[in-house]
Amino acid sequence: MAVKERIGTVVSNKMDKTVVVAVETRVPHPKYGKTMVQTRRYKAHDENNESNEGDRVRIRESRPLSKQKRWVIVETLSHASGV
C-alpha cells in the first residue's frame, strides 16, 4: 500500500510538537457539478517545533502517534510571509 502524502497550510502551532495542517481539495458537487473546496484538518507531528502558522508543509501518513495524531511533517515548502 502506498504511503499517503498531502500538502497543506499550518493553521495552528500552539501544541507542543504538534501542528494542525489544513489541506484543501477541490471536488465537483455530486448533483450540480460546481467545483467546491473541501478543507480537512490533520494533526501532524513536528519534532523540533519548527513550523509556524501560515507555512506550506508536506505531511506523510505514519503509525498512530497519539489519539488523533497520525501524520508527520516531511518538509517545509515555504515559510509564512511577514512573520
Rank of each mutant, 00 (worst) to 15 (best):
S66P: 07
G82E: 10
R60D: 01
E61V: 05
E61C: 02
H45K: 09
L65H: 04
V74M: 12
N49V: 03
Q38S: 10
K17N: 13
Y42M: 01
V72W: 02
G54I: 06
V27N: 11
A2H: 08
K31D: 14
H45F: 15
K43T: 12
N49P: 06
S78Y: 07
E5Y: 10
I7P: 12
P64L: 04
E5G: 04
R58I: 07
T18R: 13
K43Y: 11
P28L: 06
E53D: 08
A80C: 14
V72D: 07
V72C: 05
K17E: 13
T35H: 03
S12E: 09
H29C: 07
D55I: 00
R56D: 04
V27H: 09
R6D: 01
K14W: 03
E75V: 06
G8A: 09
E47L: 11
T35G: 00
L77Q: 11
E47S: 14
H29F: 04
M36T: 07
M36K: 15
V74C: 06
V19Y: 00
S51L: 13
R58N: 07
G33P: 12
W71Y: 13
K17T: 12
V23W: 02
S78L: 13
G33D: 08
H29N: 12
W71F: 15
A80R: 09
K17V: 06
R40H: 13
V10P: 00
R60L: 12
I73P: 00
V74I: 13
A2Y: 05
L65F: 07
R58P: 02
K69W: 00
A44W: 01
P28R: 14
S81L: 05
K69R: 14
Y32L: 15
T9A: 06
V21K: 03
E61R: 10
K43I: 03
V20W: 04
K67M: 08
E61P: 03
K31V: 12
V83T: 11
L65T: 02
N48S: 11
K17W: 09
S81H: 08
D46F: 00
S51R: 09
D46I: 01
A22I: 01
M36C: 10
K31H: 09
K69T: 15
D55A: 00
I59Y: 00
V83I: 14
E5M: 10
E24T: 10
E24L: 04
E5N: 08
G54D: 07
V3A: 11
